[in-house]
Amino acid sequence: MSDEGTTSPQAATKEWPKIRTVGVDGMLVSFGDRLSEPANRAALAFRAALDRATPEGVEETSTSLISAYVRFDPVHRDHAGLRADLDTLLQDRDWYAADLPQGRREWRIPTVFGTDLAPQLDEAAAAAGMTPDEAIASISDTVVRVQTIGFAPGQPYLGELGPDWDIPRQKALTKRIPEGALAVAIRQLVLFSVSTPTGWRHIGQTGFRLFRPDAETPFVLRPGDAVRFEPVSPERLQAMKDDPDGGARAKDLT
């Protein structure tokens, strides 16, 4: 079966989903051993259902690319009891084909592709077998999903891009990539929330502030949100420099 459909290869096996113990107060529900659209969908949908079900003793939930993590109070629950609750919920439906969580938004984020602001567009395009203009069209025409938040506060991993973008990370690190940078590798995009070294290729630049520690909601993007990166000129991006959203606009999806 193909990863592109609504059923992942793992859904057809006895091995997945898998429930595992994580330390004295955690459980991990994994939907595969590698990233796929259905496995990510399943993790997001299962975590949302778990939050609605509120099993006794559960104190926190979160998702990674293909898993849902559950932290519980070991004074009031043990692993065996929570495992039974998780297994019951897993049997409720086909999570690989489940609807994505409610409350999602679609963001349109102005992005400068290439130029001195994003100097690795040509290199990434060549690795994907495209011209720079073809690469810009490929990225900007694709609506990607926030698959998870990680590495740095509020930083999204987004995907999944087409097979042409299954390009490796660099062998050497770029010494520093700026906040708001858009980078690509392994069919994913990362929008950087902080300035940091990276092995991902810097192909676009935005003015979007992803992490706002003083705000009521410090992380702007949420897992499950849809994102489209819209090409703009450097001059247009500069004109929006005082806007913390960098000109981005959002609409509710569900």
Rank of each mutant, 00 (worst) to 15 (best):
M130F: 11
L182P: 11
Q238W: 06
G247V: 08
A152M: 13
S233W: 04
G224A: 09
Y69M: 12
V75E: 14
M27R: 14
V232L: 04
G114C: 03
T63E: 03
V70M: 08
T21H: 07
Q238R: 15
E15N: 10
V75Q: 12
D73Q: 08
T61G: 06
D85K: 09
S30P: 01
P38S: 06
D116S: 14
Q120E: 15
R52L: 12
R104G: 12
V112Q: 03
L191P: 07
D164P: 02
I177E: 09
F211T: 02
A84E: 15
G5V: 05
R71C: 10
G246H: 08
G32S: 04
E15Q: 13
L35M: 13
D51F: 00
Q205M: 12
Q170E: 10
A239K: 12
A128M: 03
Q155D: 02
Q120S: 09
T115C: 07
D87K: 13
R104F: 02
A248V: 07
E60Y: 12
K251N: 12
R105T: 09
A127H: 02
R77C: 11
G246R: 06
R77Q: 15
D116F: 00
I139K: 07
R209Q: 13
R34K: 12
L210P: 03
L221I: 04
A97F: 03
V75T: 13
W165R: 07
G180K: 04
I149N: 03
S67A: 15
W200T: 08
F229K: 11
G26Y: 07
G103L: 01
L28Y: 01
A126E: 14
T206A: 03
D243R: 07
I139Q: 11
P163I: 08
A11Y: 00
P153V: 06
R236C: 04
D133I: 00
F211P: 00
G57N: 05
F192Q: 04
A98D: 02
G26L: 07
D214S: 12
A118P: 03
D87M: 08
P168H: 06
D164K: 14
I109G: 11
K241Y: 05
G247N: 09
E160Q: 11
D92R: 14
R201K: 11
A215L: 01
L86W: 06
E160T: 13
W200K: 05
V144H: 08
I177D: 08
V22T: 06
S195K: 10
G114W: 01
E60C: 04
P55E: 07
L173V: 12
A118V: 02
E179Q: 15
G224L: 06
P132A: 07
A135N: 04
E60I: 01
L50A: 11
S138I: 00
L189A: 10
R236G: 02
